[in-house]
Amino acid sequence: MKALSPHQTDKHASWAFAESRPDEDEVMLRARERSADLGITPVSEGTAALLTVLAATRSPATLVEIGTGAGVSGLALMRGLSRSAMLTTIDPDAEALRAAREAFADGGFPANRTRMITGRARTVVPRLTSRSYDLVFLDADKASLVFHVEQAARLLRPGGLLVVNDALDQDRVPRPAVREASTVAAREAGKLLRDEHEWFSALVPTGTGVLIAVRR
């Protein structure tokens, strides 16, 4: 294995420091335990902190989360929202949604603040109303990532925010030789958001990459 250069070592140390910076409370730690019990990989600590900051900065009233998991990302988003904001979250796994519901209750969020939909996002998302959402968070099947980015363009109001988790596909995107389907899809989604005139976008190396884009 090729040794890391001093510059690469410093970069890794900075990334590790940033990821260890958040001090998560018992509610979030229990949500992470539920994720582990269900074999679900939640967003990283750094990504969760970023989601809370983005939600608090944008002050969105309506959000869509595609890929609920056991509620870690939903908790992070809800903590940055106003008390009147509504989170719609979609996942095909009913057991994961039950775990997320427990996490939201643990966090003190009433059930009427969330709309939890059990179903495949490819079927559910096209039924959501166009230009009715302020923030869309994607953490679902990579094979459908470009489809969901295109749907986000339809769902978001002008000025709305799109956030894509694991945008580097477990850090495989920067390696040109990697041609796995999930990696190719992540590259295509990133290129779409970079090149399309209707988006301003930036890639943040938090977790395994968070792609942030604003709908013009």
Score class of each variant (00 low, 15 high):
residue 80 G to Q: 01
residue 82 S to M: 09
residue 82 S to F: 05
residue 84 S to D: 15
residue 89 T to R: 02
residue 90 I to N: 08
residue 90 I to L: 05
residue 94 A to M: 10
residue 95 E to C: 04
residue 95 E to P: 09
residue 96 A to W: 07
residue 96 A to D: 08
residue 97 L to Y: 00
residue 98 R to A: 12
residue 100 A to L: 11
residue 103 A to E: 10
residue 104 F to Y: 15
residue 105 A to Q: 10
residue 106 D to Q: 06
residue 108 G to H: 00
residue 109 F to A: 05
residue 110 P to N: 08
residue 110 P to Y: 14
residue 112 N to R: 05
residue 113 R to A: 13
residue 116 M to P: 01
residue 117 I to Y: 03
residue 123 T to M: 07
residue 126 P to L: 04
residue 126 P to Y: 00
residue 128 L to Q: 11
residue 130 S to G: 06
residue 133 Y to H: 15
residue 134 D to K: 04
residue 136 V to P: 05
residue 137 F to H: 13
residue 140 A to F: 04
residue 142 K to W: 06
residue 144 S to P: 06
residue 145 L to C: 01
residue 146 V to G: 06
residue 149 V to T: 12
residue 149 V to C: 14
residue 151 Q to C: 03
residue 156 L to M: 07
residue 157 R to V: 11
residue 159 G to V: 09
residue 164 V to E: 05
residue 168 L to I: 02
residue 169 D to P: 04
residue 170 Q to N: 10
residue 172 R to K: 12
residue 173 V to C: 12
residue 173 V to Y: 04
residue 173 V to S: 10
residue 175 R to G: 02
residue 177 A to Q: 13
residue 177 A to W: 14
residue 179 R to C: 13
residue 179 R to D: 02
residue 179 R to Q: 01
residue 180 E to P: 00
residue 181 A to V: 08
residue 183 T to L: 08
residue 184 V to A: 12
residue 184 V to F: 00
